[in-house]
């Protein structure tokens, strides 16, 4: 599903080039559950953003479902966002001016899902995440855990093939964190590909493979099972 070949990323500031990622080669198959670990500043988030086509890479090749992402235009990438990719971030990131219901609705609107289907999808999701009572509240009226729940729900509502999660439980208490992890695991069991970033060994254990990043290089890869 995903193939990276010699991907690199640097920031250049006047005459100084700062490398963030170098020589990244990796492959992710459909149904994989991959964990990325590493110290702060190692480039984990940057890698995830590149995988999610949120950020450009400075060099190398990236194939997503055999399409060369490094050659695609913005329109095509947006298409992938709509169709295949769901994001969960450490800092929830909901649209503050929209209610829970509207936040869930927005990706479906962009995907041009029909009204009736949209309504049932949202109802179903609210139900599944147990947030029906909260549907008319704005994000700032919710607790952190609830916001992250909504963010996850929004990522899942388009039924993505790939979920990218950047420290999704970082701001939650352990009970809430485990709930989210269980949910991701359940999705993975149903066939969704998941790539997560975490610092927590226990949560890393949910994956079948752990990629360790250090100063922008892949330090080592732990295969489990």
């Amino acid at each position: 599903m995903i193939r990276l070949k010699d991907v690199e990323k640097y920031y250049s500031n006047k005459f100084v080039k700062t490398w963030v990622l170098r020589n990244i080669d990796m492959e992710v198959k459909e149904g994989d559950f991959v964990t990325i670990m590493g110290p702060s500043g190692a480039g984990k988030s940057t890698l995830l953003h590149i995988l999610g086509m949120l950020d450009d890479m400075s060099g190398g090749e990236y194939y997503f479902l055999d399409e060369p992402v490094h050659q695609l235009n913005e329109r095509k990438r947006t298409g992938f966002h709509q169709q295949y990719i769901g994001f969960v971030f450490q800092a929830y990131h909901l649209i503050d001016e929209l209610t829970v219901y509207e936040n869930l609705e927005t990706p479906l609107l962009y995907k041009k899902v029909k009204t009736s289907e949209r309504k049932s999808l949202i109802a179903e999701t609210l139900d599944r995440f147990n947030i029906v009572a909260k549907k008319d509240l704005f994000p700032n009226q919710l607790s952190g855990g609830q916001q992250q729940l909504v963010a996850v729900a929004r990522a899942l509502i388009i039924n993505p093939k790939l979920i990218l999660a950047d420290e999704p439980t970082g701001n939650l208490n352990s009970k809430q964190g485990l709930e989210i992890m269980d949910m991701l695991k359940a999705l993975n069991d149903e066939g969704t590909t998941i790539i997560q970033v975490t610092h927590d060994e226990k949560k890393a254990a949910y994956g079948d493979r752990i990629i360790h990043l250090l100063d922008g290089y892949i330090d080592k890869i732990d295969e489990r099972n």
């Binding site: 999610g52 949120l54 329109r75 709509q82 994001f87 990131h93 503050d96 990706p107 962009y110 929004r154």
Partner: peptide, 11 residues
Amino acid sequence: EIGLRKVIGAR
């Protein structure tokens, strides 16, 4: 908001 909208599929 703009970034988010793009992330969730806005052209």
